[in-house]
Design a protein around this nucleic acid. Structure first.
Lengths: 261, 261
DNA sequence: GGAATAGTGTCTGTAAGACATTATTAG
DNA sequence: CTAATAATGTCTTACAGACACTATTCC
Protein backbone atom coordinates (compact mmCIF):
# COMPACT_ATOMS: atom_id res chain seq x y z
CA UNK A 1 0.00 0.00 0.00
CA UNK A 2 1.41 3.37 -0.96
CA UNK A 3 1.79 6.33 1.30
CA UNK A 4 -1.05 8.19 -0.39
CA UNK A 5 -3.42 5.26 -0.29
CA UNK A 6 -2.77 4.87 3.40
CA UNK A 7 -3.28 8.56 3.87
CA UNK A 8 -6.65 8.36 2.17
CA UNK A 9 -7.53 5.22 4.06
CA UNK A 10 -7.09 7.20 7.23
CA UNK A 11 -10.29 8.99 6.31
CA UNK A 12 -12.23 5.77 5.81
CA UNK A 13 -13.50 4.51 9.17
CA UNK A 14 -14.53 1.18 7.70
CA UNK A 15 -10.92 0.32 6.89
CA UNK A 16 -9.19 2.20 9.70
CA UNK A 17 -11.58 2.71 12.60
CA UNK A 18 -11.44 6.03 14.38
CA UNK A 19 -8.39 6.35 16.56
CA UNK A 20 -8.17 8.46 19.67
CA UNK A 21 -4.98 9.84 21.17
CA UNK A 22 -4.89 10.52 24.88
CA UNK A 23 -2.36 11.66 27.44
CA UNK A 24 -2.22 10.02 30.84
CA UNK A 25 -0.14 11.47 33.63
CA UNK A 26 1.69 9.52 36.32
CA UNK A 27 1.90 12.33 38.88
CA UNK A 28 4.00 11.42 41.89
CA UNK A 29 4.50 13.16 45.17
CA UNK A 30 5.57 12.18 48.67
CA UNK A 31 3.44 12.32 51.80
CA UNK A 32 4.61 11.13 55.19
CA UNK A 33 7.58 9.40 53.64
CA UNK A 34 5.44 7.34 51.27
CA UNK A 35 5.17 7.84 47.49
CA UNK A 36 1.68 8.81 46.35
CA UNK A 37 0.19 8.84 42.86
CA UNK A 38 -2.66 11.01 41.67
CA UNK A 39 -5.66 8.88 40.69
CA UNK A 40 -9.26 9.56 39.74
CA UNK A 41 -12.14 7.22 40.41
CA UNK A 42 -14.06 6.47 37.26
CA UNK A 43 -17.67 7.60 37.48
CA UNK A 44 -18.93 5.67 34.45
CA UNK A 45 -18.17 2.59 32.36
CA UNK A 46 -15.90 1.16 31.29
CA UNK A 47 -14.14 0.30 34.51
CA UNK A 48 -16.69 2.26 36.56
CA UNK A 49 -15.63 2.45 40.19
CA UNK A 50 -12.03 1.59 39.37
CA UNK A 51 -9.22 4.10 39.62
CA UNK A 52 -7.32 5.55 36.70
CA UNK A 53 -4.48 7.91 35.94
CA UNK A 54 -5.69 11.43 35.18
CA UNK A 55 -5.73 12.02 31.46
CA UNK A 56 -7.76 13.08 28.53
CA UNK A 57 -8.04 13.30 24.80
CA UNK A 58 -5.51 15.29 22.85
CA UNK A 59 -6.57 17.77 20.22
CA UNK A 60 -3.91 16.58 17.83
CA UNK A 61 -3.09 19.34 15.39
CA UNK A 62 -4.26 22.02 17.78
CA UNK A 63 -1.95 21.47 20.75
CA UNK A 64 1.30 19.63 21.27
CA UNK A 65 1.57 16.60 23.55
CA UNK A 66 3.56 18.33 26.30
CA UNK A 67 0.95 21.07 26.50
CA UNK A 68 -1.87 18.55 26.68
CA UNK A 69 -0.13 16.74 29.52
CA UNK A 70 0.52 19.98 31.39
CA UNK A 71 -3.14 20.90 30.99
CA UNK A 72 -4.33 17.57 32.40
CA UNK A 73 -1.98 17.92 35.34
CA UNK A 74 -3.06 21.50 36.03
CA UNK A 75 -6.74 20.58 35.85
CA UNK A 76 -6.36 18.09 38.69
CA UNK A 77 -3.75 19.73 40.86
CA UNK A 78 -3.62 23.41 39.97
CA UNK A 79 0.11 22.99 39.39
CA UNK A 80 1.52 25.14 36.62
CA UNK A 81 4.14 23.30 34.63
CA UNK A 82 6.74 25.98 34.08
CA UNK A 83 7.19 25.98 37.83
CA UNK A 84 8.53 23.67 40.44
CA UNK A 85 6.89 20.58 38.90
CA UNK A 86 8.85 18.33 36.62
CA UNK A 87 7.01 16.88 33.63
CA UNK A 88 8.50 14.56 31.02
CA UNK A 89 7.24 12.11 28.46
CA UNK A 90 7.30 8.53 29.74
CA UNK A 91 6.23 6.16 26.95
CA UNK A 92 3.38 5.43 24.58
CA UNK A 93 0.96 2.55 24.88
CA UNK A 94 -1.16 1.23 22.03
CA UNK A 95 -1.90 -2.44 22.58
CA UNK A 96 -5.08 -3.65 20.90
CA UNK A 97 -8.00 -3.79 23.28
CA UNK A 98 -6.44 -1.63 25.97
CA UNK A 99 -9.59 0.50 25.77
CA UNK A 100 -12.73 -1.59 25.18
CA UNK A 101 -14.53 1.30 23.51
CA UNK A 102 -12.24 2.04 20.59
CA UNK A 103 -8.62 1.97 19.47
CA UNK A 104 -6.72 4.38 21.70
CA UNK A 105 -3.07 5.31 21.74
CA UNK A 106 -2.05 6.81 25.03
CA UNK A 107 1.03 8.96 25.50
CA UNK A 108 2.00 8.68 29.14
CA UNK A 109 3.79 11.45 31.04
CA UNK A 110 5.63 11.40 34.33
CA UNK A 111 5.39 14.27 36.82
CA UNK A 112 7.13 14.99 40.13
CA UNK A 113 5.77 17.61 42.47
CA UNK A 114 5.98 18.72 46.10
CA UNK A 115 3.36 17.74 48.63
CA UNK A 116 0.14 19.58 47.88
CA UNK A 117 -3.52 19.76 48.78
CA UNK A 118 -6.04 17.07 47.91
CA UNK A 119 -7.44 17.40 44.40
CA UNK A 120 -11.07 18.11 43.57
CA UNK A 121 -13.07 15.46 41.75
CA UNK A 122 -13.72 16.48 38.15
CA UNK A 123 -17.06 16.23 36.43
CA UNK A 124 -16.29 12.84 34.88
CA UNK A 125 -14.75 11.36 38.01
CA UNK A 126 -16.55 10.46 41.19
CA UNK A 127 -13.43 11.08 43.23
CA UNK A 128 -9.81 12.12 42.91
CA UNK A 129 -7.06 11.55 45.43
CA UNK A 130 -3.37 11.17 46.13
CA UNK A 131 -3.14 7.42 46.69
CA UNK A 132 -0.25 5.72 48.53
CA UNK A 133 1.56 3.63 45.94
CA UNK A 134 2.16 0.67 48.31
CA UNK A 135 -1.61 0.32 48.83
CA UNK A 136 -1.94 -0.64 45.16
CA UNK A 137 0.23 -3.71 45.66
CA UNK A 138 1.96 -3.46 42.29
CA UNK A 139 4.29 -6.26 41.27
CA UNK A 140 7.49 -5.66 39.39
CA UNK A 141 5.89 -6.70 36.12
CA UNK A 142 3.19 -4.07 36.49
CA UNK A 143 0.40 -6.44 37.45
CA UNK A 144 -1.95 -5.98 40.38
CA UNK A 145 -2.85 -8.85 42.71
CA UNK A 146 -6.56 -9.68 42.96
CA UNK A 147 -6.83 -8.60 46.58
CA UNK A 148 -5.87 -4.95 46.10
CA UNK A 149 -8.26 -2.45 47.66
CA UNK A 150 -8.12 -0.08 44.70
CA UNK A 151 -8.05 -1.70 41.28
CA UNK A 152 -6.59 0.27 38.38
CA UNK A 153 -8.46 0.64 35.09
CA UNK A 154 -7.14 -0.06 31.59
CA UNK A 155 -3.40 -0.87 31.51
CA UNK A 156 -2.70 1.83 34.06
CA UNK A 157 -1.03 -0.55 36.50
CA UNK A 158 1.58 -1.23 33.86
CA UNK A 159 1.99 2.48 33.06
CA UNK A 160 2.34 3.36 36.73
CA UNK A 161 4.85 0.58 37.18
CA UNK A 162 6.91 1.91 34.26
CA UNK A 163 6.68 5.42 35.70
CA UNK A 164 7.94 4.31 39.10
CA UNK A 165 10.87 2.50 37.56
CA UNK A 166 11.72 5.57 35.48
CA UNK A 167 11.52 7.71 38.62
CA UNK A 168 13.93 5.42 40.47
CA UNK A 169 16.42 5.73 37.63
CA UNK A 170 16.00 9.49 37.27
CA UNK A 171 17.04 10.09 40.86
CA UNK A 172 20.34 8.41 40.13
CA UNK A 173 21.66 10.79 37.53
CA UNK A 174 19.52 13.92 37.75
CA UNK A 175 18.80 16.34 40.61
CA UNK A 176 15.04 15.81 40.18
CA UNK A 177 14.62 14.55 43.74
CA UNK A 178 14.41 18.23 44.65
CA UNK A 179 11.18 18.48 42.60
CA UNK A 180 9.48 16.51 45.39
CA UNK A 181 10.48 19.10 47.98
CA UNK A 182 9.64 22.74 48.66
CA UNK A 183 11.96 25.37 47.30
CA UNK A 184 14.11 25.26 50.43
CA UNK A 185 14.95 21.97 52.06
CA UNK A 186 17.49 20.15 54.22
CA UNK A 187 19.83 17.33 53.26
CA UNK A 188 18.00 14.87 55.53
CA UNK A 189 14.74 15.77 53.75
CA UNK A 190 16.43 15.12 50.43
CA UNK A 191 17.67 11.80 51.74
CA UNK A 192 14.12 10.91 52.76
CA UNK A 193 13.04 11.40 49.14
CA UNK A 194 15.68 8.97 47.92
CA UNK A 195 14.86 6.42 50.60
CA UNK A 196 11.16 6.66 49.83
CA UNK A 197 11.50 6.32 46.04
CA UNK A 198 14.19 3.66 46.17
CA UNK A 199 12.55 1.85 49.07
CA UNK A 200 15.74 1.35 51.04
CA UNK A 201 17.61 3.07 53.83
CA UNK A 202 20.70 5.11 52.97
CA UNK A 203 23.64 5.88 55.17
CA UNK A 204 23.00 9.41 56.50
CA UNK A 205 26.62 10.49 56.77
CA UNK A 206 27.78 9.22 53.40
CA UNK A 207 24.68 10.61 51.69
CA UNK A 208 25.28 14.02 53.17
CA UNK A 209 28.87 14.21 52.01
CA UNK A 210 28.01 12.82 48.61
CA UNK A 211 25.29 15.39 47.88
CA UNK A 212 27.54 18.28 48.82
CA UNK A 213 30.36 16.90 46.68
CA UNK A 214 28.34 16.80 43.44
CA UNK A 215 28.78 20.20 41.77
CA UNK A 216 25.53 22.06 41.20
CA UNK A 217 23.24 19.63 43.00
CA UNK A 218 22.32 21.94 45.87
CA UNK A 219 23.40 25.39 46.98
CA UNK A 220 23.37 26.62 50.54
CA UNK A 221 21.14 29.43 51.72
CA UNK A 222 23.09 30.26 54.86
CA UNK A 223 19.95 29.58 56.88
CA UNK A 224 18.98 26.71 59.12
CA UNK A 225 15.70 25.24 60.25
CA UNK A 226 13.98 27.09 63.10
CA UNK A 227 14.18 24.10 65.39
CA UNK A 228 15.76 20.70 65.58
CA UNK A 229 14.21 17.39 64.59
CA UNK A 230 11.09 15.90 66.17
CA UNK A 231 13.08 13.67 68.39
CA UNK A 232 16.06 15.91 68.98
CA UNK A 233 19.20 16.76 67.12
CA UNK A 234 20.71 20.03 65.93
CA UNK A 235 19.12 22.40 63.44
CA UNK A 236 19.75 21.43 59.83
CA UNK A 237 21.17 23.78 57.22
CA UNK A 238 18.81 24.81 54.46
CA UNK A 239 19.58 24.41 50.74
CA UNK A 240 17.90 25.11 47.46
CA UNK A 241 18.25 23.28 44.16
CA UNK A 242 21.45 24.03 42.24
CA UNK A 243 21.94 24.62 38.53
CA UNK A 244 23.08 21.14 37.51
CA UNK A 245 20.85 19.22 35.07
CA UNK A 246 22.81 16.01 35.46
CA UNK A 247 24.64 14.62 38.48
CA UNK A 248 28.33 13.92 37.98
CA UNK A 249 29.26 11.62 39.44
CA UNK A 250 25.87 9.95 39.70
CA UNK A 251 24.22 8.81 42.92
CA UNK A 252 23.89 5.12 42.24
CA UNK A 253 21.38 2.90 44.01
CA UNK A 254 23.09 0.45 46.32
CA UNK A 255 20.45 -2.22 45.79
CA UNK A 256 21.09 -2.76 42.09
CA UNK A 257 22.61 -6.19 41.88
CA UNK A 258 25.55 -6.52 39.55
CA UNK A 259 24.70 -7.51 36.02
CA UNK A 260 20.94 -7.77 35.87
CA UNK A 261 20.84 -10.88 33.74
CA UNK B 1 -16.17 18.18 28.95
CA UNK B 2 -16.96 14.73 30.23
CA UNK B 3 -15.24 11.56 29.26
CA UNK B 4 -18.21 10.35 27.27
CA UNK B 5 -18.65 13.60 25.41
CA UNK B 6 -15.01 13.55 24.43
CA UNK B 7 -15.36 9.96 23.37
CA UNK B 8 -18.29 10.79 21.12
CA UNK B 9 -16.54 13.89 19.84
CA UNK B 10 -13.80 11.57 18.62
CA UNK B 11 -16.21 10.43 15.97
CA UNK B 12 -17.01 13.94 14.80
CA UNK B 13 -14.37 15.05 12.29
CA UNK B 14 -15.61 18.62 12.34
CA UNK B 15 -14.66 18.97 16.01
CA UNK B 16 -11.77 16.53 16.13
CA UNK B 17 -10.30 16.02 12.68
CA UNK B 18 -9.17 12.54 11.75
CA UNK B 19 -5.95 11.59 13.49
CA UNK B 20 -3.36 9.22 12.13
CA UNK B 21 -0.86 7.29 14.19
CA UNK B 22 2.41 6.30 12.57
CA UNK B 23 5.61 4.61 13.62
CA UNK B 24 8.95 5.94 12.39
CA UNK B 25 12.14 3.98 12.90
CA UNK B 26 15.59 5.43 13.52
CA UNK B 27 17.58 2.42 12.33
CA UNK B 28 21.29 2.80 12.98
CA UNK B 29 24.21 0.73 11.82
CA UNK B 30 27.92 1.26 11.34
CA UNK B 31 29.80 1.17 8.04
CA UNK B 32 33.48 1.90 7.70
CA UNK B 33 33.59 3.33 11.20
CA UNK B 34 30.84 5.84 10.50
CA UNK B 35 27.29 5.70 11.87
CA UNK B 36 24.65 5.32 9.18
CA UNK B 37 20.90 5.78 9.37
CA UNK B 38 18.32 4.11 7.15
CA UNK B 39 16.45 6.72 5.09
CA UNK B 40 13.98 6.62 2.22
CA UNK B 41 13.67 9.27 -0.43
CA UNK B 42 10.12 10.51 -0.70
CA UNK B 43 8.63 9.89 -4.11
CA UNK B 44 5.64 12.20 -3.76
CA UNK B 45 4.51 15.31 -1.90
CA UNK B 46 4.72 16.50 0.71
CA UNK B 47 8.47 16.85 0.96
CA UNK B 48 8.97 15.09 -2.39
CA UNK B 49 12.63 14.46 -3.04
CA UNK B 50 13.55 14.89 0.62
CA UNK B 51 14.62 12.00 2.79
CA UNK B 52 12.62 10.55 5.64
CA UNK B 53 12.83 7.89 8.31
CA UNK B 54 11.16 4.66 7.26
CA UNK B 55 7.74 4.37 8.79
CA UNK B 56 4.10 3.88 8.17
CA UNK B 57 0.62 4.00 9.54
CA UNK B 58 -0.32 1.86 12.50
CA UNK B 59 -3.48 -0.21 12.51
CA UNK B 60 -4.31 0.77 16.06
CA UNK B 61 -6.51 -1.84 17.62
CA UNK B 62 -5.23 -4.53 15.28
CA UNK B 63 -1.52 -4.55 16.10
CA UNK B 64 0.59 -3.23 18.91
CA UNK B 65 3.14 -0.48 18.43
CA UNK B 66 6.22 -2.68 18.83
CA UNK B 67 4.91 -5.06 16.18
CA UNK B 68 4.22 -2.21 13.79
CA UNK B 69 7.75 -0.87 14.25
CA UNK B 70 9.25 -4.32 13.73
CA UNK B 71 7.22 -4.69 10.55
CA UNK B 72 8.43 -1.36 9.16
CA UNK B 73 12.01 -2.27 9.93
CA UNK B 74 11.69 -5.71 8.36
CA UNK B 75 10.11 -4.29 5.22
CA UNK B 76 13.13 -2.12 4.54
CA UNK B 77 15.96 -4.27 5.79
CA UNK B 78 14.72 -7.85 5.98
CA UNK B 79 15.85 -7.89 9.61
CA UNK B 80 13.68 -9.96 11.91
CA UNK B 81 13.27 -8.35 15.30
CA UNK B 82 13.51 -11.31 17.61
CA UNK B 83 17.05 -11.71 16.35
CA UNK B 84 20.27 -9.79 16.58
CA UNK B 85 18.60 -6.41 16.07
CA UNK B 86 17.71 -4.26 19.02
CA UNK B 87 14.44 -2.32 18.82
CA UNK B 88 13.06 -0.02 21.49
CA UNK B 89 10.58 2.78 21.70
CA UNK B 90 12.22 6.20 21.52
CA UNK B 91 9.59 8.91 21.97
CA UNK B 92 6.35 10.22 20.54
CA UNK B 93 5.98 13.38 18.49
CA UNK B 94 2.72 15.18 17.96
CA UNK B 95 3.39 18.86 17.38
CA UNK B 96 0.71 20.65 15.40
CA UNK B 97 1.63 21.01 11.75
CA UNK B 98 4.38 18.41 11.77
CA UNK B 99 2.56 16.76 8.85
CA UNK B 100 1.00 19.30 6.49
CA UNK B 101 -1.69 16.85 5.36
CA UNK B 102 -3.41 16.04 8.62
CA UNK B 103 -2.86 15.70 12.34
CA UNK B 104 -0.37 12.88 12.86
CA UNK B 105 1.07 11.47 16.03
CA UNK B 106 4.25 9.55 15.38
CA UNK B 107 5.69 6.97 17.74
CA UNK B 108 9.41 6.81 17.02
CA UNK B 109 11.49 3.68 17.54
CA UNK B 110 15.23 3.21 17.75
CA UNK B 111 16.96 0.20 16.19
CA UNK B 112 20.57 -1.02 16.24
CA UNK B 113 21.73 -3.62 13.75
CA UNK B 114 24.89 -5.03 12.27
CA UNK B 115 26.20 -3.91 8.90
CA UNK B 116 23.90 -5.24 6.20
CA UNK B 117 23.14 -4.99 2.51
CA UNK B 118 21.66 -1.92 0.87
CA UNK B 119 17.87 -1.77 1.12
CA UNK B 120 15.48 -1.89 -1.82
CA UNK B 121 13.36 1.15 -2.58
CA UNK B 122 9.73 0.55 -1.66
CA UNK B 123 6.79 1.41 -3.88
CA UNK B 124 6.21 4.76 -2.23
CA UNK B 125 9.85 5.74 -2.07
CA UNK B 126 12.04 6.60 -5.00
CA UNK B 127 15.12 5.38 -3.16
CA UNK B 128 16.23 3.89 0.14
CA UNK B 129 19.74 3.87 1.51
CA UNK B 130 21.98 3.70 4.53
CA UNK B 131 23.09 7.33 4.82
CA UNK B 132 26.19 8.44 6.76
CA UNK B 133 24.93 10.48 9.69
CA UNK B 134 27.71 13.11 9.44
CA UNK B 135 26.62 13.93 5.89
CA UNK B 136 23.33 15.24 7.28
CA UNK B 137 25.10 17.92 9.28
CA UNK B 138 22.80 17.73 12.27
CA UNK B 139 23.26 20.24 15.04
CA UNK B 140 22.86 19.36 18.69
CA UNK B 141 19.39 20.88 18.79
CA UNK B 142 18.21 18.64 15.98
CA UNK B 143 18.20 21.29 13.29
CA UNK B 144 19.75 20.92 9.84
CA UNK B 145 21.85 23.69 8.28
CA UNK B 146 20.59 25.01 4.93
CA UNK B 147 23.56 23.67 3.01
CA UNK B 148 23.06 19.97 3.73
CA UNK B 149 23.08 17.73 0.69
CA UNK B 150 20.21 15.60 1.92
CA UNK B 151 17.38 17.44 3.62
CA UNK B 152 15.15 15.54 6.01
CA UNK B 153 11.37 15.69 5.75
CA UNK B 154 8.88 16.48 8.53
CA UNK B 155 10.50 16.76 11.98
CA UNK B 156 12.73 13.79 11.25
CA UNK B 157 15.96 15.73 11.88
CA UNK B 158 14.79 16.26 15.42
CA UNK B 159 13.75 12.62 15.83
CA UNK B 160 17.06 11.39 14.45
CA UNK B 161 18.91 13.75 16.76
CA UNK B 162 17.00 12.41 19.75
CA UNK B 163 17.73 8.85 18.61
CA UNK B 164 21.44 9.49 18.34
CA UNK B 165 21.55 11.01 21.80
CA UNK B 166 19.65 8.03 23.20
CA UNK B 167 22.07 5.68 21.45
CA UNK B 168 25.05 7.44 23.02
CA UNK B 169 23.53 7.05 26.44
CA UNK B 170 22.53 3.43 25.90
CA UNK B 171 26.10 2.39 25.20
CA UNK B 172 27.09 3.64 28.62
CA UNK B 173 24.99 1.34 30.72
CA UNK B 174 23.85 -1.48 28.43
CA UNK B 175 25.77 -4.01 26.33
CA UNK B 176 23.87 -2.91 23.20
CA UNK B 177 27.03 -1.92 21.36
CA UNK B 178 27.25 -5.60 20.46
CA UNK B 179 24.01 -5.22 18.45
CA UNK B 180 26.06 -3.27 15.88
CA UNK B 181 28.45 -6.20 15.41
CA UNK B 182 28.21 -9.72 14.02
CA UNK B 183 27.62 -12.54 16.46
CA UNK B 184 31.36 -12.98 17.00
CA UNK B 185 33.63 -9.97 17.36
CA UNK B 186 36.88 -8.71 18.83
CA UNK B 187 37.40 -6.19 21.60
CA UNK B 188 38.98 -3.67 19.18
CA UNK B 189 35.88 -3.98 16.97
CA UNK B 190 33.72 -3.29 20.00
CA UNK B 191 35.87 -0.31 20.83
CA UNK B 192 35.40 0.99 17.29
CA UNK B 193 31.63 0.96 17.88
CA UNK B 194 31.99 3.09 20.98
CA UNK B 195 34.40 5.49 19.30
CA UNK B 196 32.08 5.83 16.32
CA UNK B 197 28.89 6.44 18.30
CA UNK B 198 30.51 8.69 20.89
CA UNK B 199 32.67 10.45 18.34
CA UNK B 200 35.86 10.33 20.34
CA UNK B 201 38.91 8.12 20.65
CA UNK B 202 39.17 5.77 23.60
CA UNK B 203 42.29 4.40 25.20
CA UNK B 204 42.71 0.92 23.73
CA UNK B 205 44.36 -0.70 26.74
CA UNK B 206 42.01 0.67 29.37
CA UNK B 207 38.96 -0.12 27.24
CA UNK B 208 40.10 -3.70 26.80
CA UNK B 209 40.55 -4.29 30.52
CA UNK B 210 37.32 -2.51 31.37
CA UNK B 211 35.17 -4.60 29.00
CA UNK B 212 36.58 -7.84 30.34
CA UNK B 213 36.04 -6.70 33.93
CA UNK B 214 32.30 -6.06 33.56
CA UNK B 215 30.52 -9.32 34.37
CA UNK B 216 28.38 -10.66 31.56
CA UNK B 217 29.35 -8.08 28.94
CA UNK B 218 31.23 -10.48 26.65
CA UNK B 219 32.19 -14.13 26.84
CA UNK B 220 35.20 -15.64 25.13
CA UNK B 221 34.94 -18.18 22.34
CA UNK B 222 38.45 -19.54 22.63
CA UNK B 223 39.04 -18.58 19.00
CA UNK B 224 41.05 -15.80 17.41
CA UNK B 225 40.83 -13.97 14.12
CA UNK B 226 42.43 -15.79 11.17
CA UNK B 227 44.94 -13.03 10.59
CA UNK B 228 46.23 -9.90 12.24
CA UNK B 229 45.15 -6.34 11.55
CA UNK B 230 45.41 -4.60 8.19
CA UNK B 231 48.57 -2.81 9.18
CA UNK B 232 50.05 -5.44 11.44
CA UNK B 233 49.57 -6.62 14.98
CA UNK B 234 48.75 -9.96 16.53
CA UNK B 235 45.53 -11.90 16.01
CA UNK B 236 42.69 -10.76 18.26
CA UNK B 237 40.65 -13.06 20.46
CA UNK B 238 37.02 -13.51 19.50
CA UNK B 239 34.10 -12.93 21.84
CA UNK B 240 30.34 -13.12 21.72
CA UNK B 241 27.78 -11.10 23.63
CA UNK B 242 27.31 -12.12 27.27
CA UNK B 243 24.12 -12.47 29.29
CA UNK B 244 24.17 -9.10 31.08
CA UNK B 245 21.31 -6.69 30.32
CA UNK B 246 22.93 -3.83 32.21
CA UNK B 247 26.59 -2.95 32.64
CA UNK B 248 27.81 -2.75 36.23
CA UNK B 249 29.84 -0.72 36.61
CA UNK B 250 28.83 1.36 33.60
CA UNK B 251 31.16 2.46 30.82
CA UNK B 252 30.92 6.21 31.17
CA UNK B 253 31.74 8.59 28.34
CA UNK B 254 34.88 10.56 29.04
CA UNK B 255 33.65 13.63 27.17
CA UNK B 256 30.66 14.38 29.40
CA UNK B 257 31.58 17.58 31.16
CA UNK B 258 30.83 17.63 34.86
CA UNK B 259 27.45 19.01 35.73
CA UNK B 260 25.82 19.85 32.41
CA UNK B 261 24.38 23.19 33.47
C1' DG C 1 63.64 -4.59 9.97
C1' DG C 2 60.02 -1.14 10.98
C1' DA C 3 55.48 0.04 12.08
C1' DA C 4 51.19 -0.96 13.88
C1' DT C 5 48.37 -3.43 16.96
C1' DA C 6 46.54 -6.93 20.88
C1' DG C 7 46.88 -7.51 25.34
C1' DT C 8 48.91 -6.92 30.15
C1' DG C 9 51.22 -4.55 34.11
C1' DT C 10 51.74 -0.62 37.11
C1' DC C 11 50.82 3.62 39.32
C1' DT C 12 47.89 7.51 40.87
C1' DG C 13 43.85 10.21 41.89
C1' DT C 14 39.04 9.90 42.86
C1' DA C 15 35.08 8.12 44.74
C1' DA C 16 32.09 4.89 47.50
C1' DG C 17 31.08 2.40 51.64
C1' DA C 18 31.82 1.23 56.54
C1' DC C 19 32.47 3.14 60.75
C1' DA C 20 33.66 6.52 64.34
C1' DT C 21 33.20 11.06 66.36
C1' DT C 22 31.52 15.63 67.68
C1' DA C 23 28.06 18.96 68.43
C1' DT C 24 23.35 20.30 69.06
C1' DT C 25 18.66 19.80 70.13
C1' DA C 26 13.97 17.70 72.17
C1' DG C 27 11.90 15.75 75.90
C1' DC D 1 20.44 13.81 81.75
C1' DT D 2 19.39 10.79 77.72
C1' DA D 3 18.25 9.81 73.17
C1' DA D 4 18.24 11.19 68.61
C1' DT D 5 20.15 13.50 64.91
C1' DA D 6 23.21 16.88 61.78
C1' DA D 7 27.51 17.10 60.14
C1' DT D 8 32.39 15.84 59.72
C1' DG D 9 36.54 12.75 59.88
C1' DT D 10 39.04 8.45 58.90
C1' DC D 11 40.07 4.24 56.73
C1' DT D 12 39.66 0.68 53.18
C1' DT D 13 38.53 -0.93 48.80
C1' DA D 14 37.34 -0.37 43.99
C1' DC D 15 37.82 1.72 39.80
C1' DA D 16 39.13 5.08 35.99
C1' DG D 17 42.77 7.12 33.49
C1' DA D 18 47.63 7.69 32.20
C1' DC D 19 51.54 5.39 30.84
C1' DA D 20 54.81 1.72 30.01
C1' DC D 21 55.81 -2.65 28.15
C1' DT D 22 55.72 -7.17 25.65
C1' DA D 23 54.39 -10.06 21.99
C1' DT D 24 52.69 -10.74 17.46
C1' DT D 25 51.71 -9.74 12.80
C1' DC D 26 51.78 -7.04 8.16
C1' DC D 27 54.49 -4.79 4.78
Amino acid sequence: MTDEEEFLAGYDPSRYPAVAVTVDVVALTIRDGVPHVLLVERGRPPFQGLWALPGGFVKVGAEDLDTAAARELAEETGLETPGRVHLEQLATYGDPGRDPRMPVVSVAYLAFGPTMADPQAGSDASDAAWVPVPSLGLTASGAQPPGATRRLAFDHARILSDGLERARGKLEYTPLATAFLPEVFTIPELRAVYECVWGEALHAGNFHRKVLSVPGFVEGTGQTTASGGRRGGPRARLYRSGDARLLHPALLRPGTEDGVR
